[in-house]
Structure formats: C-alpha cells, structure tokens
Design a protein around this nucleic acid. Sequence first.
DNA 1: TCTGGGGTCCTAGGACCC
DNA 2: TCTGGGGTCCTAGGACCC
Length: 434
Amino acid sequence: MPIALIDCNNFYASCEQLFQPALLGRPVVVLSNNDGCVVARSAEARALGIPMGAPWHTLKELARRHAVVALSSNYALYGDLSDRVMRILSRFSPCQEVYSIDECFLDLGGAQPNPAACGRLIHREIRRLTGITVGVGLGATKTLAKFANHCAKKRPEFAGVCPLFEMPSREADRLLAWAPVGEIWGVGRRLTARLEKQGIVTALDLKRAAPSRIRAAFSVTLERTVRELNGEACLGLMAGPGTRKQILSSRSFGALISALAPLEEAVAAYATRAGEKLRRQQLLAGSIGVFLRTNPFREDLPQNQGSLTLPLPPTDDTRLLAQTALRALRAVYRPGFAYQKAGVCLTDLVPADRRQGDLFVDAAQEKKSRSLMAAMDAINRAMGSGTVKLLAEGNDPRRAMRARLRSPRYTTRLDELPVARTEPSAAEQRTLPP
DNA sequence: TCTGGGGTCCTAGGACCC
DNA sequence: TCTGGGGTCCTAGGACCC
C-alpha cells in the first residue's frame, strides 16, 4: 500500500520556461518577494552553484558573467499551473494531500493494482498535459515516499520514478546509506549537526537508531521519523485543506521606516489583507498580533523588535482588525529605530458558521458589517485589489513591493494572455499548456 | 542600496490552581 | 536547619517545512 510523493521539478523556473521557451536551457532564477532571495533555480542555474535562498544582490556579478535570467515571482501564474497539476493528479487516487504549491501525496493503496506502473503513467501524463516535469517517489510511509522522490530526482537510473516500496530491503538500504541524514524529511540543519555528533551521518544510520534513544536525546518528532524510515506509518494523509490555525500577513518595507505614521499605514494594510484571507476561508479571528523589527543584517544600526497580541470578539471585520492592530502597534513601537518589517498575525481562528453566541453583540450591527465586508470583497475582486480600502492604509510608495522582473500572468488575466504570432513555432506549440 | 513570506509542531518554564 | 505533590494552561522560543 504505497504512498506516492509527486513533486514538480524546479517548479517556478519551469513555469516561466513554459511560456518563454527561449529560456529553456538557460540559467533562470526566480526571486522572492521584494526581489530579495533566490527561491527557485533552473537546472542550469543550479549547475552554476547558485544556492537556494541566496540574497540576489550577492550574485549580481556571477549572474552577469553567465547571463543568468532573474525573474520576480509570479504567484498568479504558479498558483494556476499548480491547480492544473493537482487536478490531474487527483484522478489517480481518491486520497490526495496537497502538501505545497508544487507537491502532493497520493495514497496508491487499493485503487491501483500496480503502483509502480501508475507512477510512471503519472510522470508521462503530467508532462503531456501541462509541460511540467515531475519526480515520483513511492514508499511505504510519507517519509519514505519523500526519500524515494529525492532518489527519483537525483539518480538518473530511476528516470524520475523511484519505486522504493517494492525494492528488496538490501537495495533500499543501499540508497539510504548513500544519502546524508540531512536529506531526510524533518531533519534540518541543526538536527543534522547534532545527529552527526552522535555518529548518525547517513539516512541508514538514522533508520537503524533505536527509537527510544532518539526520543530521549531529541524529540518525539524525530522518533516518528525513525519509525517511518522503518516502514511504520506515523503520519497520516490529510485529505482536504484542513483548518488553518493562523493567518499571517507581513512584508519587508522597500525602505527602512522610523516614524510611527507610515508604520500605522503598513499595519492597517496588513490587517486588511489578513481580513481578506480570513473571509475567503470563512473563519473568524479570536485574537490579533502585531510584530515589527529592524533589519537584523544592519549591524551598524540599533536593533529592536516587538510584538503584542490582543484579544478580539471573534470577528472578520477589517475595520475592527485594523483598529485593534493599530492599538497593538502603538504599544510596541519605539521611536528612534529604523524598522524593516512588520506583520499582522490572526490566531484563535474559528469557523464563521460555528461562532459562540454572544448576548451583548448587536445583531443588526453585525449584519451590516457582514454586508459591508462582502461588498468590499466583491468590488476588489471585480475591479482589482485595493479599489476600496481603509483610509488608514494610506498610499505610501515606499511600501510597494519590488517586483520589477515579473513575467505576465499568462493564464489568469485576459489582458496578459500569451498572444500567438501568425506562425507559432513548433517549440511554442509543444510547450503551450491546454 | 540590496538578505522572503507563510505555515506547523513540540518543549520548557512560569503562573496558577487545589 | 526545615518550605508538598500533582495538575493545567499559556507563552516564548526553537526546530522544521515549502
């Protein structure tokens, strides 16, 4: 009863190359918000040694020498292509957990008589229908499926599909002995260092460690990882999106901000965005937190950070969210610091239809609030986000995100559709998605 | 000049209760 | 000299993920 982990290769970079075939075969990187860090690389960019997460400004020289193409991230495009991929994958199993924008787990037990053949079919069909290449890992548990996916991508003999679950255990152990322990899902940088000190260096070492010892020396989380590596399922598949526990909206500013007034505008804007997310998911927030901090990389400047969480009557009204967020901000703000980032975090979320009744809430007011929010959301959906907004948000251009290198939103905006020339090239015809 | 944004889970320790 | 035992809840911080 294997679990499959399907993961798109170089997803953001692949999406860009799909619509700009001229980028195929070239080093391409996609940058985070504000064009700050590298968050995706084409195979060619990876081959140049550009690390994931590297600050873009430290790579400019290298990029110039090798004609690296840098693009701002285009989440409208990636999100839409992700939806297409996930929809196709859902046809292969009734049990799908969409784990992130570019990967999902499928339970291939039961429904699929031959999971390995199914994995190969998935690999072919996703490429045929979307132009995106995926890696497929098949393992007895989620952790093993993740590991199999890693093998599928890194080891050419698998050609993108690694059926770890049906391999003889000696062969599977050989693969585990080849992989450093840090490649295992759930083992990050810190744990790797601590594990290595105890002589646990490869994934196989971790598999063979005694769960009780791992639990005592580390945590139950890592103990579960050990058990999963031995084929004991500890992590279930979570079909459906699950209920959020927090909603966060934050941004680094385009320039450092010291005065309270522009910070207030930023926080009001973040509260607005958080409120929109909240209503889209039909939730109410029971508390709201605000944090702000200076730039930790600027060792020449005095550092400060603060945060405060305030309770709310469960609400999704942007006006109340913003007012409360501003109260919190004023309590934590300290003059004399150059702030670089602020954010708003909604917690104690409850489903909107399961709210505890409140004797002292004015029902008429609440109805008006709901209508107002629904109208704002409808206008902003139809006419562009920010068409109606709170006066408190202001209009400070320093807050605008840097995204100078964004490609068109080819698939989600009528005015940005890719336009076929009279004679589309064969390459373009091949790569255009359905 | 320039270093992302959005999440989850677990643990330790303090406050508080009887 | 000497200061219990058992429990819950909350928060901050650390670790991880993409």
